[in-house]
Design a protein around this nucleic acid. Sequence first.
DNA 1: CGCCGGTGTGGAATCGCTCTCACATCCAGG
DNA 2: CCTGGATGTGAGAGCGATTCCACACCGGCG
Lengths: 351, 351
Amino acid sequence: MTADVRTTAMAAAVGPLPHAPTLEEVAERAGVSRSTASRAINGGLKVSPEAQAAVDVAVAELGYTPNRAARTLVTRRTDSVALVVPEPDERVLTDPYFAGTLQGLSDAFAATEIQLVLLIARRGEEAQRTNRYLRNRHVDGAVIVSHHRDDTLDSVLAESRLPCVFVGRPWTAPRPVQYVDVNNYLGGRRATEHLIAAGCRHIGTITGLLDMAAGVDRLAGWRQALQDAGLPDDAMVRGDFTTAGGAAATERLLQAHPEIDGLFVASDLMAAGALGVLASHGRAVPDDLKIVGFDNLGVAASTSPQLTTMNNPVVEMSRVAGELLLAQITGTATSLEPRIFGAEIVIRASA
Amino acid sequence: MTADVRTTAMAAAVGPLPHAPTLEEVAERAGVSRSTASRAINGGLKVSPEAQAAVDVAVAELGYTPNRAARTLVTRRTDSVALVVPEPDERVLTDPYFAGTLQGLSDAFAATEIQLVLLIARRGEEAQRTNRYLRNRHVDGAVIVSHHRDDTLDSVLAESRLPCVFVGRPWTAPRPVQYVDVNNYLGGRRATEHLIAAGCRHIGTITGLLDMAAGVDRLAGWRQALQDAGLPDDAMVRGDFTTAGGAAATERLLQAHPEIDGLFVASDLMAAGALGVLASHGRAVPDDLKIVGFDNLGVAASTSPQLTTMNNPVVEMSRVAGELLLAQITGTATSLEPRIFGAEIVIRASA
DNA sequence: CGCCGGTGTGGAATCGCTCTCACATCCAGG
DNA sequence: CCTGGATGTGAGAGCGATTCCACACCGGCG
């Protein structure tokens, strides 16, 4: 009967959609019950070798994949996690940092059945939709990237107790929340120390966004290094992590502090912008002025001169974030400690 | 970071999870049957005003959201669409083109309940998982970006008849498949014509990947413009759409054709790489050599000199792609015609 | 007054899966 | 020979929604 139905369906070239095989059909073909088929497919505990083999064959022949909705309905697992991006704008999406996150997470989940749902959380009305989506557990967990000061996500996540991991230290951490991050403070300090060791005595900085931990911490590291060395720490201008922002900031910095001979820029994207401006001002890098950037995500190697920069292992960090989330979801997490990565300097031509 | 952070975390994890309200509970609270409650929630056809009001109140009070899995099981709609990226590597993810796609799609679906599932389709074994995922209709439709020549996706999509729209013309189009794209051929031609009009007589090109339609078409446009003008069309080197690839290609081009005074580069990313190399070779842009790029996605405005380039309205195109897909899914699509956008030139400093 | 069509309602059957539980089978040990 | 545990199996009860269908009710028309 089943065979007849199928061939009929095949024959009709246009109308009916190819109907996805069900567990029932697999079971019938394998000559076992639905229960046994289900067991064979999910780990095969308490299944005889013969039954297992028969089911395997049937699955392969029919191209069977479990219906996710049906499975979710009973197990209450969705086998999907959200990647939450609290900003819709170009800034985040075009940043290689975001691309790295995507790649790392994709690596982490490659071996699992887990799908990545992209949640781009706009402000206002639509933020509510995102919140509801998370709160009602339409995903098993969430990875949050680029967490600003004013986001309401934190409370939503707390009250729903959804497993989650932040990529980059969240601004507020009243409740213990797990995150992965590079040591931004130490990175800023080391970068600046490198400039000092290279002979710079007037070292400026272009900061990142100061409503993000990465921006604040890198700035703090720069300041500490200068204070430790007894050098002035007043040549500071704000940037926004973008190339254009970096260029604009550089103009302002040169105006206010023409004496600088060293520059720590809180991201390579901004450093690339800075290089263009410096060139047009006739300041040679690294001879007149040395630059150290931050991130080392591809941009640094394609500027001229190539950038000396701090390594920011985003792909690796995000992969770890994915694994930590997985551990939380499966309940095998032993602690919610953050995982901090070191920031090594990568020396190229600019300093 | 401190010891008691963890204990607090574990303490917070204890206790019953907030149980999501069901339709049953809504119905009971509203004093109606499950059927009526369901009808009231889904459009409210054939529901009396009183019943509707009672259900609305109950929904609000309980904070009810329909269980997606249960709904999907019966309606066979998943309310999610896949964004398929047939390459896992850095190249695609870091390209601003991809970021633009994300943003456009996110716009298109912002007003709907539809979620975006990111499908990063690796090669080999894992590609099979992706194919199965699509074939078994775990999503209502798919948007495919960056479609190469050797992908097996096409046949999978064809046989499953899954609604889909390509962003960028797919390499193979034996069956009628809908896509959105910029007119790459015309773009390449206009860019080159602009260089000719500016007085260039030896115009080279750095191509994109030649296993993608965008690469081939832009090249064809460049060639046609030169042939029409009776100029030589032999100064062609292959690039790969990346900054580093653009830089390398430029080196090769200068080696083989030092006489060039104009250059059409098939993407701004590659053009940025080219600018660096040209600067280090002492070739002034635009005085010694004029450059026109392609894409105008932010990079073009942050190089120095700023790039003259062809506008590639990716965000807009992807938004349209999302809308076309929506139309296919709801069955309101009137045709599967591709939608082609014009490529306007944006004149800045490089040509 | 009887009948008809339209409206609103609730009962009940699904959708495809997991998982509990009862049962059959088999072998070891008393 | 009987008992007990271990092992594999299948029947069947849900999971939480949608939707078909039968039915009650009501106003209007012949």
